[in-house]
Every structure is written in C-alpha cells, then in structure tokens.
Amino acid sequence: MAVQISPSILAADFARLADEAAAVPNADWLHVDVMDYHFVPNLTLGLPVVESLRKATDKPLDCHLMIAEPDRWAPQYAEAGAGSVTVHAEASRAPVRTLREIRALGARAGLALNPATAVEPFEDLLGEVDMLLLMTVEPGFGGQKFLDVVLPKLRRARELVDKHGGHVWLQVDGGVDGETVERCAEAGADVFVAGSAVYGASDPAAAIDELRAAAERAGA
C-alpha cells in the first residue's frame, strides 16, 4: 500500500490550528488526538474543536480517541465529519458494534492497541476495521521515545493483515521520526503519525516529504 503521513496536531500550536493545518498541504491526513484524562493522564480537545477544524481545512481528519467511553462518543466524531475514527481495544466494551456504527456513518473505522496489548486476540476483528493502529509509545503524551519492543508485534500484525487480504491499513503512532519511520516501514506499517517530527521542524511540509521518502525506501 502507498505510504501515508498523518501529522499529529497534538504537537501543533493550538491557538493557530487552522494555520497549522494549512502548513502541511502534502499531508494525507491530520491526526487528532482526543484525550479525556480518564483513559490516559492528559486532557486535550474534543468534538467542538474537531467540528471547527473540519470547517477550516479540506484535509481528512484522523481522530484517535484515547477516551474511557469510546462506544458512546465515537459515532459523534464520525457525524462531525471525521474521515477516520479509531477506538482503543482496551477501552471499548462493544468494539464490533462501535466499529460498525463508525462505518455506517461514512468514516473509516480504526482499532488501536497499546504497546503491551497483543495483536493476535483481535485477528477475528480485522474484517470489521479499516485500520489497525499500534501505539509505539504509551498513550497520553507527545514527544515520547519510540518503543522498539513494538516492532515484533508490528511484523506479526502485517502477517495477519496480509493473511486476511491486506485491505487493512497498518498505522503506527508515537516517536515516529526520520530514523524510526524506516524501521516501522520495514516491519510493515504504511500509515505514519508524526507530531514533533513535523510540527517541531522549521518547514513542516518538507519534514513530511522526508518522512515519506524514508518510509518508501524502507518499505520498497
């Protein structure tokens, strides 16, 4: 599958989100981290910001819900115009129902797994998802160091996805930069969330081009 780069606005200037979205015209998605201070120890943004951002940019929004009640809230993010809505397996009590509701509302449905959560128990859910997100840091804060321990799981996830037809996008999120993006691509990822590596750069658009090129070389 083609490499996709999804810059995380968690690393952007929240006071200038429309401008920050415009600064990455070559991005495939804008990654929106929604945290509620319950599932993770941080509080970021929610539906009102997503609704406003949807009006301010043509880029599809990739909403990653790190919240305690994703089954309740996920459909509302799809209704707000998100192009993709991802819920955590550790938080969802009815993942099949929730994933189907997201799809029924016209968004892509994603399932996220924390670093210590094994991928094999969720093999039977691959038919219900459009994207599988493997966290490569502990969720909750940007700017963390990449966890190499996730790479073997990423390779196993690629094997499972390919076994079931290869239609599921395989996303990584956390500590992705010009060096770790290559290792993730080699292990099988095709969608890359990058926060500090993009918005911490002097030229965010150029940073995206560099990440894409590195991932394409490694995954070729």
Rank of each mutant, 00 (worst) to 15 (best):
I5Q: 11
L10N: 09
A11L: 04
A12T: 00
L17A: 02
E20F: 08
L30T: 04
V34I: 15
M35W: 07
V40M: 14
N42S: 15
N42A: 09
P48R: 10
V49R: 06
V49Q: 04
S52K: 14
L53Y: 06
A56W: 05
T57C: 08
P60Q: 00
D62N: 07
C63P: 01
M66F: 07
I67N: 02
A68H: 09
P75Q: 11
Q76V: 00
G81Q: 12
A82E: 02
G83V: 02
S84P: 00
S84E: 04
V87E: 00
A89M: 13
R97Q: 09
I102A: 12
R103T: 15
A104F: 03
G106N: 03
N114R: 14
A118S: 15
P121M: 09
D124H: 15
V129D: 01
M131I: 12
L132F: 11
L132P: 11
T136Y: 00
G140F: 10
G143K: 06
L147V: 10
D148A: 15
D148G: 04
R156H: 08
R158S: 08
V161F: 00
K163L: 10
K163E: 13
V168H: 09
W169F: 11
Q171K: 10
G174K: 09
G175W: 00
V176F: 05
D177A: 05
G178N: 13
E182I: 01
C184V: 06
D190E: 12
D190P: 00
V191D: 01
F192A: 08
V193K: 00
Y199N: 03
Y199H: 13
P204L: 11
L211N: 05
A213E: 15
A214Y: 10
A215G: 13
G219E: 01
